[in-house]
Design a protein around this nucleic acid. Sequence first.
DNA 1: TGAAATATATCGTCTTACGACATATTAAAT
DNA 2: ATTTAATATGTCGTAAGACGATATATTTCA
Lengths: 143, 143
Amino acid sequence: MTRSRAQKSDLTDAEYRKLAAFRQALRGFVAFSAAEAAAIGLTPRQHQVLLAIRGWPDSMPPNIKSLAERMMIRHNSAVGLIQRLEAAGFIQRIESSGDRRFIQLSLTPKGEAALAALSASHLTELRQRGPRLVEMLQALISG
Amino acid sequence: MTRSRAQKSDLTDAEYRKLAAFRQALRGFVAFSAAEAAAIGLTPRQHQVLLAIRGWPDSMPPNIKSLAERMMIRHNSAVGLIQRLEAAGFIQRIESSGDRRFIQLSLTPKGEAALAALSASHLTELRQRGPRLVEMLQALISG
DNA sequence: TGAAATATATCGTCTTACGACATATTAAAT
DNA sequence: ATTTAATATGTCGTAAGACGATATATTTCA
């Protein structure tokens, strides 16, 4: 839909279309990911939690607070996620032997298997979608 | 955290870390976007709806069904989004003059202004984050 | 020993998403 | 023309997930 520009700082129609197209491409990946997760009984956020725990960059497993920081959510939001994942048998909570305030998070065998399947399909899909995502981003930021 | 490989098809620790790092980078952009939207009273999805309407690729404005398809959600989910956006004054619904089942969606001046501000800051941010996102994606899919 | 700091948990509320179902309008079939 | 299909939108109940505010347990520090 064509629109005139109201101010100098406004974006052009073409820029809005490119921004919208990039978001659309991102949604495409997110939707793929959500469908894959749903197929094995996980929500998108639950999948992300499993990946964050398994791909944790440090040598020590994460606790709730550090996981919340990496997920960029509040600690109390993380508590809910962890509770549902534990109830469904995908992760374990182990009280730290030292400071008993800390809870060490790790995947159960069920969680490992679920994440392995999801990660393989995501890797394949990203190899497919990657080039197009990069294209749309380049078109947007170099315009 | 180091883990042994259970099956041939399992990913390596390094691959999990790269996948997690890419997700982390995506979350970074999404979190930036959510914070910007929140600063002007919009939820992330509401912002995306404004952008999808404004950056609509066709000459005719979208209706609920076509918007839902582009947003990759069910039509009834779109109805709720549209209702809240209209109640908050960001968009208008105009009954189509031809087939009266269709509702034409468009931004109000308030919606235009909100989206213009968000789009400008997103464009700037994407120019910043773009290269890093592309790097992480390349590292992941070429590994 | 008492106070501050830290980690986790709980509660109430909102947005979003869904499936199932309902209603209105138009198109197609007879 | 009237019934039947299809289409577009709306409603209802339920669940996940996010938040702020508040609570509890544990550790550290003064």
